[in-house]
Design a protein around this nucleic acid. Structure first.
Lengths: 150, 150
DNA sequence: GATAGATAGTTGCATTTGCAACCAAGTCAA
DNA sequence: TTGACTTGGTTGCAAATGCAACTATCTATC
C-alpha cells in the first residue's frame, strides 16, 4: 500500500485545471464552427503566424502529425485553409488561411482573448505571470517527443 | 485580425504542461499494465479511498460516467476490481480493488510518487506549493459540470 | 400506493485518436 | 548515379471517446 494520492499528483492536477478552464471555450468553437480542438489549434497558429507547413505546426504545438494532417484536411474542406506547394521542398506544403478562415480566426481570437482575460482576472496579474512561468518551465522540461492523449 | 496568440492562452498552456508532464508516466502504466488513463485514475482512487461507487469516482475526477463504466469493466476483467451490490441503493455498486489490484496500485503508486517528486524538485518546494494552489483555484472555478474532451 | 421525475449505470453508434505502415521527395556518401 | 537513410505527409485499422438513448431503481408528491 503506497498511500499515493492522485489528487496531489501534479500531472493530474494540471490535466484537471486544463480541462476545467477549457471546457466552456471548447463549446464555443465546437458549436459555432463545428471545430475540434486540433482544428482550432491549427487555425489559431496559422492565423497568428501566417504561412506554415504542417510539420512546423506539429513542432510548435507538440501535436502528432496525423492529427494535424486530418485537421488540415477538414479545415481545407470547410474552405478556411489553402495549401500551396513549397518552393523549397517538394514534399512540404505551405498552409495559409483563406479570407474566410481569417474571419473565423478573428472571431474566435477575440472571444479567446476575452475568455483568457476573465480567467486571469480571477487570479490577479502577479499570480498569472507567475503561473505562466511555471507552466512554461514544465512544458520545456517535458521534451519535444510525441504528442498527447487528451 | 485579432492578433490572438495561442501560446499565451491559459487553457492551452495548461494543456501543454499537462501533456508534457504526464507523457512518460502514461507510458509506464500503459506498457506495464496495458492500462488507459481512465483506468489508472479509477484504480488510483479506489486504491486510495477504498470502497466507492462509480458515481463517486465520476464526481471526484470530473470524468464522464461512460468512461468510468468502461474502465470499471476492464479493470474487473483484469481481475483488479470487484463489484458488490450497495446495501443502500439497488442501482449502485460498491467498487473495491482485489488484492491483485492493490498490488498494481502499490506498484504504480510508488512510481507515481517518485515521478511527482522529481517534477516538483525541478521547481523547488515553494513554487510547487504555489502552483498547487493556483491549479486548485482554477479547478474549483471550472465548476462541476460535465467532463472532458480529450 | 401510483405515477412523475431523478439518478446509477450500460450500450450503440458516430467521431476522434494512436500507431504502424506506407509513399514520395530530399540528403548524403561512395 | 546509385543506393541507404531521413523526412513531410497520408492512410488503414484498432482502440478510446462523446453523446444520446435505454433499463432499473429510487424519491417524491398526490
Amino acid at each position: 500500500m503506497s498511500d499515493f494520492d492522485l489528487e496531489r499528483f501534479l500531472p493530474y492536477l494540471l490535466n484537471q485545471a486544463a480541462e476545467a478552464t477549457s471546457r466552456s471555450f471548447n463549446d464555443i468553437y465546437r458549436k459555432a464552427y463545428g471545430m475540434t480542438r486540433t482544428q482550432w489549434r491549427v487555425l489559431a497558429h496559422l492565423g497568428r503566424f501566417g504561412a506554415l507547413t504542417a510539420r512546423q505546426i506539429c513542432d510548435r504545438t507538440a501535436t502528432e502529425k496525423t492529427k494535424v494532417s486530418r485537421a488540415v484536411s477538414s479545415l481545407e474542406i470547410e474552405g478556411w485553409l489553402a495549401r500551396s506547394p513549397s518552393p523549397h521542398d517538394g514534399r512540404a506544403e505551405i498552409l495559409t488561411l483563406t479570407p474566410e478562415g481569417q474571419g473565423v480566426y478573428a472571431d474566435l481570437g477575440q472571444q479567446a482573448k476575452r475568455y483568457d482575460a476573465a480567467l486571469r482576472a480571477e487570479l490577479g496579474p502577479e499570480l498569472t505571470t507567475e503561473l505562466d512561468g511555471l507552466l512554461r518551465r514544465l512544458i520545456a522540461k517535458g521534451g519535444t517527443d510525441g504528442a498527447a492523449q487528451d
